[in-house]
Write a protein that binds this DNA or RNA. Structure first.
Length: 158
DNA sequence: GCCAACGTTGGC
DNA sequence: GCCAACGTTGGC
């Protein structure tokens, strides 16, 4: 059964428009350096899972579209490159610490689903995203929340 | 730019 | 194994 996720990204670093312009509208999701998020990517995320693409540290703060997981968890090889910003000497090819997935753009919402609109949506009241101090950049989302976001966006859920 | 909430680090 | 110090995230 498909699961649903929310991925945070700072649009100044990588926006949904960057994803749209990427080859095959597809990208690897490297640089996750939090163990809880790592575990989701390594152990739980499956090909075909839905991803809500959220712009953090942005104006507006919003879910701006959706993507699909097209490659399940595999070692984040950027951690092995000494000159890379995601280098981590604790991770080696023999014993990788960090993992990533690949995603492909599904669609860009014509109307972004703002954080403000999520805050006034009863079905989204439990979203981790809306909890104060929540910094987890890979979050599980319930089917109810997935549907509610699509309802606000005015498009049918996949 | 501020700062609360976290996660990590490292001395003990 | 505790916990203070520190660095980061990210909304406001």
């Amino acid at each position: 059964m498909a699961q649903y996720w929310l991925f945070k990204s700072e649009p100044d670093v990588f926006s949904i428009h960057d994803l749209q312009q990427a080859k095959g509208k597809r990208t690897s999701w490297e640089g996750i350096r939090n163990y809880q998020a790592r575990n989701f990517l390594r152990d739980t995320a499956q090909v075909g899972d839905g991803v809500l693409f959220y712009h953090s540290n942005a104006d507006p703060l919003a879910i701006v579209g959706t993507a699909t997981i097209v490659k399940p968890g595999y070692p984040d090889h950027f951690a092995w490159e000494p000159d890379h910003k995601y280098f981590d000497p604790a991770s080696t090819p023999d014993n990788p610490v960090w993992f990533m997935v690949d995603i492909r753009l599904t669609n860009i919402f014509s109307q972004p689903v703002t954080r403000e609109s999520l805050q006034s949506e009863a079905d989204c009241s439990q979203m981790l995203l809306l909890k104060k101090g929540s910094r987890l950049s890979i979050q599980p989302v319930t089917e109810t929340e997935w549907r509610a976001v699509h309802r606000i966006a005015g498009i049918p859920p996949l």
